[in-house]
Amino acid sequence: MCQMSSFSEKGLLGELEQLVLLAVMNQSGEGYAVSIRDEIEERTQIALGRGSIYVTLDRLDRKGYVSSVMGEPTSERGGKAKRCFKLTLAAAESAVARMRQAKPVRGVR
């Protein structure tokens, strides 16, 4: 628990958060809880629990990495709207910055 707090104080993301963030980024503003979960499962073969997705999205939202808008209600969803997530500018910037920082460490070229 204590580790986690220092983690987020430094603005670092956990693995789960990274996964979700990448999925959000990849769906360019169309992603919502169900589609994000599907995407992650498709790409990584990791089936995340429903609760984890919500909790992570919630955390990313409060950390300011993602923002959300309510989509159009559709009939296959019982007339309920989707909550669609997209990356915030800050997140994109910091992601880029971090990637640069990360390069030498990982030794990727």
């Binding site: 809880a33 019982g78 309920k80 989707k82």
Partner: peptide
């Protein structure tokens, strides 16, 4: 709302 939709 969205959660109810997701669950549906």
């Amino acid at each position: 709302e969205s959660m109810l939709g997701d669950l549906t």
